[in-house]
Design a protein around this nucleic acid. Structure first.
Length: 469
DNA sequence: TTAGGGTTAG
């Protein structure tokens, strides 16, 4: 970095700090701020503090705060938030108590409230909430933070009680979104959909749904399998929100369309995104979605596309999830050679170390292709401990392959050695102990599969074309 | 500076 070529003026640096991505840039900007003698600038120091705080890097955040020549309300609140992000609720409380009166803003109360929620201390959070009501510093944000605290703790009844107490004048779109997400998290997507209907059907002063609302309700539709309603929501909100530039919403829509077999509609959503907009989640959804729809070659093509894109702007790099999606896509489509190659290039080319789940995909891939011996060799040479899923997969294939008696006994012994507290291992041990019944189940299942295959529809064959854009 | 959303084998 050459200081002479860098934009002078703190406004430009401030923009760089708030807009920077990644740890190295943060540190470089921090150095620059120090070199230019701007470390005593409260606004710049606070901006840096926020970055470190969000990343959970408490030590540099604390140092910036301690070295400030004077501290305003924003600096205090940023430090509170940094402590909260690191789960240090008690330290946040001490700082809050130390704050000079005029520096305590509504944001201070709300930040402290979320600190307690994050560490699961709902009683203290509630006490702060009640105190902020008495101090008349509360707003919809305080209520929403408290509602979310109960939602995240799984206490939907308490959340609902506050929701009802808020009344329609105080409830905003975040309140609804929070409740919907809470129901989803608890595994009650129907309740999330009911909440959405209430939001859209309530007369008069109901707030307008946002991209967050739509993303949440679409996810709920995917979970209950109500693709008709999900599609209707998508169509009816398309004008409202415009062509979505929101990565999370696009991701939820693609996931829904892939899961109901509408590959073309999913890809339509993808191509409608501006170039560079799809993030890691979106790419993973596309790769997994193509894979589960029997489009292995297209999944591999999408992966290559993703890697190329990320080399250009250095933003999207495949992660562990990408390779689970990719390898299972190869497995479903019988792409043995491609699967082997991709597995081999994981660490050297992409910096992702293969984990037990990736070995599981490879075992599945090899077994489906009838390469039982290679699958066993792979598991024997695994650098990570094979888990119950890997061994269970091997066991399943070995037993049905006829010549896999040795492999199946080997896998069964490894399963028996696994920690009995591992739920899957425990289940598999029991399963192995009742092999006669298992064989019966297998026969039953293969019968069902034949019936389904005979009546099933051939999936669409439009190819994945990334250049549609 | 404070509240809400998404992907993962068998």
């Amino acid at each position: 970095m050459q200081p002479r070529t860098l934009p002078r003026g703190r406004a430009a640096i401030l923009r760089a700090v708030t807009g920077c991505r990644g740890r190295r840039e943060e540190q470089a900007l921090h150095c620059l701020v120090c070199k230019l003698g701007l470390a005593s600038d409260v606004v710049l120091a606070t901006a840096l503090l926020v970055r470190y705080g969000r990343r959970g890097l408490l030590a540099p955040a604390q140092r910036l705060f301690d070295e400030m020549p004077r501290r305003d309300a924003v600096a205090f609140n940023a430090m509170l938030a940094a402590l909260g992000a690191s789960g240090r609720a008690a330290d946040a409380r001490r700082l809050f108590d130390r704050m000079p009166g005029p520096d305590r803003t509504p944001a201070s109360w709300n930040t402290l409230l979320t600190c307690y929620c994050r560490v699961g201390d709902l009683a203290s959070a509630r006490a702060v909430f009640e105190a902020s009501l008495r101090a008349a510093t509360s707003s919809a944000v305080s209520w929403n933070a408290m509602v979310d605290g109960y939602c995240k703790a799984g206490r939907m009844d308490a959340a609902r009680e506050l929701f009802d107490r808020m009344g329609s004048s105080l409830r905003d779109v975040v309140t609804y979104n929070t409740m919907m997400a809470g129901y989803l998290r608890r595994g009650d997507p129907a309740a999330a959909i009911a909440m959405f209907r209430r939001l859209t059907q309530d007369e008069g002063q109901a707030p307008r749904p946002t991209a967050v609302t739509i993303a949440t309700v679409v996810t709920a539709c995917t979970q209950v399998g109500d693709f008709g309603f999900g599609r209707a929501v998508h169509l009816s909100t398309r004008q409202l929100l415009g062509t979505s530039t929101d990565a999370v919403l696009s991701n939820a829509l693609m996931d829904m369309y892939f899961k109901c077999g509408s590959v073309d509609r999913a890809l339509e959503v993808f191509s409608a995104m501006p170039s560079g907009a799809p993030n890691l989640f979106c790419w993973n959804t596309v790769i997994a979605g193509l894979g589960r729809n029997g489009r292995g070659e297209d999944a591999v093509r999408a992966f290559r596309d993703m890697v190329e894109t990320s080399n250009k702007n250095n933003e999207v790099r495949p992660d562990s999830v990408t390779f689970v999606a990719l390898l299972s896509a190869c497995s479903h489509s019988g792409l043995v050679r491609e699967g082997r190659e991709l597995f081999a290039e994981m660490l050297p080319a992409h910096g992702v170390a293969p984990g037990a789940e990736h070995y599981g995909c490879m075992v599945d891939l090899l077994c489906r292709a009838g390469l039982l011996g290679e699958a066993v060799r792979l598991v024997r040479t695994m650098p990570v401990r094979p888990n119950a899923k890997v061994l269970g997969c091997l066991l399943l294939h070995a037993r049905s392959s006829g010549d896999g008696v040795t492999a199946s006994e080997w896998a069964a012994r490894r399963i028996a050695e696994l920690d009995g507290r591992d739920g899957a291992a425990y289940g598999l041990s029991n399963l192995y102990a009742s092999l006669q019944r298992w064989d019966h189940v297998e026969r039953h299942r293969s019968g069902l599969v034949t019936v389904a295959a005979a009546s099933g529809k051939e999936p669409g064959r439009t190819s994945y074309d990334p250049h549609v854009r």
